[in-house]
Design a protein around this nucleic acid. Structure first.
Lengths: 229, 229
DNA sequence: CGCGAGCTTGACGTTGTTCAACTAGAGTGG
DNA sequence: CCACTCTAGTTGAACAACGTCAAGCTCGCG
């Protein structure tokens, strides 16, 4: 992880915020933000740490990782750029509930919480937008919870593969940057179970696996598996 | 469910909102809100419906119930008065993710979303407060998700009993207004499993059961079970 | 008094975890 | 250039956890 000192364009941020906040406020945010690079496996925000920054993921893929007292990991969700991360902690003063960890090399812009907060106080519309980001996270968390609670493992894993194809890799054929173990931590089951399920699907010609490359052949069957649990 | 026509005092609302909003805004909210009573089992807000109202729970206990396509129920959380319900949908325009159902007889004040929204736009601090309510829901949802994902059933049920004692009934001895089936829907397991666990704890003298009355005898042991999962 | 809903218990089968063994590829040092 | 080690992936078998089924129970209410 290193700090990229060169002043960059912030076109991303200009784009999303220009409709909500003034030039002056924008400058305030820009001046206090830094652009950082993370390699796979590096921690962007640490569970239990104080939420001093809001992160904007410009490039790469990130997992929301919860480490339990017993040392087990659980992946809450996985998101791809571009996306605002950590908005939930903006309004709710509490230590980070989970870590953000790079799954692929990432480019992240860190914005000081205090500064963004003062901008929010003066810009209801901007606050609303931030709130929507957090609410969407909330919704995903609930849906994930539901999937976990009443589906069997095969349905869970189908959910995850469909989610990754639709929301993360934007393709039915993709290079899976997660390990099998990470998929298991996402699905809330053992590594072996993920492997068995993948093998089973390959035999049934629902997906094709070649190392880390996954190709969904019969998306309807996967959706059916997801539905019946 | 009937509409209580008598004009009431709204002391609750005065209390929580006076520090954030003006007299004029308060009047606006008061005029468009209605006070409703619900009996156990009645639905306050329906899953899939449009979120036209914010509900404030003045008295009683409510479950957040998700009904899956297969007809199975899942309880996301249970809350006791006084509490603001449904704030998440305030900013995030989407149909209700879940139903709110009375577990004990309830008194609820329904406030028109559009009105409260316009007040929020003019009152950043009030918006922040609403956001915190929603964020706390979010946090609970995540913690619940985590508990479900990596704990065994006994740990889950210990979680729930501890939660009910601390957050809902505010006592280590309480009259459980949930059925065993509802506890199971909360824990994401079968009714029988809840019963077996309760019986086991009674044998081990961790809790005492007399019908619906539950008394936690050894809260430390319960906490230990919750911790080790 | 009888009925139904909720509660309880045990037996049984399915699902999923754990353990152990093996393979393949990548990085390291002699 | 070849052992070596380490990590990820894979497979199967034994075992534990959990859900389902079936039966009987109790209590409140009509």
């Amino acid at each position: 992880m290193f700090l990229n000192e060169t002043k960059q364009e912030y076109s991303w941020f200009r784009r999303i915020s220009s409709q909500f906040i003034s030039e002056k406020d924008f400058d305030k945010l820009e001046k206090t933000s830094v652009r950082l690079n993370f390699k796979r496996g590096e921690t962007i925000l640490k569970q239990g740490g104080m939420p001093n920054h809001i992160a904007y993921l410009e490039k790469g893929i990130v997992k929301f990782n919860y480490e339990s007292e017993s040392g087990k990991n659980l992946i809450l969700t996985i998101v791809a750029a571009p996306k605002i991360l950590g908005g939930a902690n903006l309004f709710y003063k509490d230590n980070n509930l989970f870590s953000l960890i790079a799954v692929e090399d990432c480019e992240v812009i860190m914005i000081d919480s205090k500064v963004i907060e003062s901008v929010l106080m003066d810009n209801s519309k901007f606050a609303m937008m931030m709130f929507q980001v957090a609410s969407e996270m909330f919704k995903k968390s609930v849906m994930n919870f539901i999937s976990l609670a009443h589906k069997q493992k095969e349905g869970r894993i189908a959910d995850i593969v469909l989610y990754l194809a639709a929301e993360v890799y934007h393709n039915t054929t993709f290079h899976l940057s997660l390990t099998r173990k990470e998929v298991a931590e996402f699905a809330g089951c053992s590594t072996e179970n993920v492997i068995m399920t993948f093998s089973k699907w390959q035999n049934e010609k629902i997906v094709t696996l070649e190392g880390k490359i996954i190709e969904i052949k019969e998306i309807d069957k996967l959706k059916y598996i997801s539905k019946v649990g």
